[in-house]
Write a protein that binds this DNA or RNA. Structure first.
Lengths: 244, 244
DNA sequence: GTCGAATTTCTTGTATGCAAGAATTTTTCG
DNA sequence: CGAAAAATTCTTGCATACAAGAAATTCGAC
């Protein structure tokens, strides 16, 4: 009855870390600490609701409290942590309601990105995005989940970048953090992969044609489909706590 | 609730010197420091490009470096400051190109807010927003700029809140920071006031009717108009540095 | 034995100390 | 006198010390 998934959650990841890299330069601790802690949260190594003991994190990450506290503040602002006055910060619960809220916002943001990107798409830019698409397909055929994840994200990110709107990119990055967390949480639904790839092709076609309205609409729907599936998976998971 | 009598002699001695607000509680320094510093930046008291000396800010705000540094980090994340490694952070330049980028994003975000809000608008909620509208008109007739500002912002904010989407509200708050800064920078153009009030009335009507599409469109255009005017004013200001 | 209060321990919030890198000034050489 | 180099000063980045508040534990009363 014991879950075999309990083997290497936190300890394994942290085992790599405690030694601060020898050739370390001065201004690098804050950024790297944020990145490490963020990864712990996004990947779920630090479970939702978990209390963060600063001293413990100092030992585990091999730094003093100052960068740890800064990282906690940063991630709190990003919505990954919740701060309680004079008490330990906790990893934000990933509320299904909030992920549903994400659907409207992310689909709208990416829809706007698609609209702007289509209007600015050069052959070179489209080719680059196409490359990311095929990289994703490659990972799909090989059943390589992490690579698929990464390529998928890069595909979307590149479109937002192509929009040429730095504010849009900034917002998208913030939202992507939450989306990623939700993705990791629901062990994803490989059966959606094929559909996602088809939708990406459609998006690519709209970008190639420079059809802003179409690109916008297809991106909106693609995001909506993906996140809706995600929400469904999470609800399913909530209904029956132990899968299979 | 809290007794101002500090029994520890050392604490009492220290309490006299920098004069922190009398009823100071423990976890309040970070928040208030962020708020103060943010105000200095948004209102332009700290000019774009200005270098921030931490020690100086400590004296000015009456706190130690820790909360100041945290505030700097926070505001850097919000995009109000730029951090340079091992050098003083500087107040972010408010690039007109970036404000133009804001137009598309904010109008889209508020358009979405209007769409969702219209679908959820109760009589009570609409009445409350209407009240904010009339408060704004009142300030308009009295030529009270700060009050007008505040009421205008409250009007928009309430609509976003009414959307019932917490993610949307979060994003909106981030964007509003930059919009406010731009507004303060260009000493605004009171001749747009009348138009803004008319547009608010139209928006209010659409919300009252529960017409999501209309509310969305009107909010989008209202925001676009306002920010476009802002950009024009800033460009104008840039052209002739000392306005008569 | 259980509930509750007091004390101890632990944890966070804030201030300060110390070192590395940048800015500035002084000094020295052409 | 000018310019480059060296030393001084200043500023940030990180670590740590100390106090206020929360949690945990012990002790006592019923």
């Amino acid at each position: 009855m014991d879950t075999p998934a309990d083997t290497t959650p936190l300890a394994a990841f942290l085992a790599q870390v405690p030694q601060p890299e020898p050739g370390r330069r001065k201004g690098a601790l804050h950024g790297s600490t944020v990145a490490k802690l963020r990864n712990l949260i996004v990947t779920g190594a630090l479970a939702p609701g978990a209390k963060l003991n600063e001293r413990e994190l100092c030992l585990q990450l091999g730094v003093s409290r100052t960068p740890v506290r800064e990282a906690i503040k940063t991630l709190t602002q990003d919505g990954l942590l919740r701060a309680l006055p004079n008490k330990s910060s906790v990893v934000a619960e990933l509320d299904v309601g909030e992920i549903e809220a994400l659907i409207d916002v992310v689909s709208t943001i990416e829809g706007l990105a698609g609209e702007l990107a289509a209007a600015r798409a050069t052959d070179e830019a489209v080719a680059e995005i196409g490359m990311l698409h095929y990289r994703m397909m490659l990972h799909h055929t090989r059943d390589e989940l992490p690579g698929y994840f990464e390529a998928n994200k890069a595909f979307h990110r590149r479109i937002v970048e192509l929009s040429g709107n730095p504010v849009l990119l900034w917002i998208w990055e913030l939202l992507a953090l939450r989306v990623d967390r939700a993705r990791y949480s629901s062990n994803l639904w490989p059966k959606r992969w094929k559909m996602a790839i088809q939708e990406h092709e459609q998006i690519l076609a709209a970008l190639t044609a420079g059809d802003a309205a179409l690109a916008s609409q297809r991106l909106r729907e693609h995001v909506r489909n993906g996140l809706s599936g995600l929400v469904a998976a999470l609800k399913d998971k909530a209904a029956k706590p132990d899968g299979a």
